[in-house]
Design a protein around this nucleic acid. Structure first.
Length: 149
DNA sequence: GCCAACGTTGGC
DNA sequence: GCCAACGTTGGC
């Protein structure tokens, strides 16, 4: 099983929205590197939910992959902000997975705290900006769950 | 295929 | 709102 981190702006879609829906498609990823990671995800993989572009950016919970990558319908929807006129149904460019709410952390791990933790120094989150879907090492996963629960 | 211009992400 | 980092586009 692999571990991941996925970013969302809470004003658009927050951990509480996922808690309410229970299962949701993770749509709107329009970056090739992030898209490729989505396509590597397997049923049962676990992912951290990260709140970005907010006052205190933080890892706020856990979700589970319940459906592997399939074409993101919003790329075909002319009214969607994610519409991509260059994508066709025969050769879709963008993919999504479905995720299920697992838990919201009682103590979210802020970006500030992540930067302070020696165990998390190598996290992709700190190394590569602007990547909204990214792998997490199992050692990092273990450390994060220990600090947040 | 290079690279300048431009657009987006996301922390601050 | 600013701006650094970095991805994408498009002319050559």
């Amino acid at each position: 099983m692999r571990f991941w981190l996925m970013k969302s702006e809470p004003e658009t879609f927050a951990i509480e929205d996922l808690r309410r829906k229970k299962v949701s498609g993770w749509d709107g990823v329009r970056n090739y590197a992030a898209r490729n990671f989505l396509r590597e995800m397997k049923l049962g993989d676990q992912a951290l939910f990260y709140h970005s572009s907010t006052k205190a950016p933080a890892i706020v919970g856990v979700m589970e992959v319940v459906r592997e990558a399939y074409p993101d319908p919003s790329q075909f929807d002319r009214r969607s902000e994610y519409y991509d006129r260059g994508s066709t149904r025969d050769a879709p460019r963008w993919f999504q997975v479905d995720v299920r709410f697992v838990r919201a952390f009682p103590r979210p791990l802020t970006l500030e705290a992540i930067k302070q933790a020696p165990a998390l120094r190598e996290m992709v989150l700190l190394k590569r900006g602007r990547l909204s879907v990214q792998p997490v090492r199992s050692s990092e996963w273990a450390y994060i769950l220990k600090s947040c629960l």
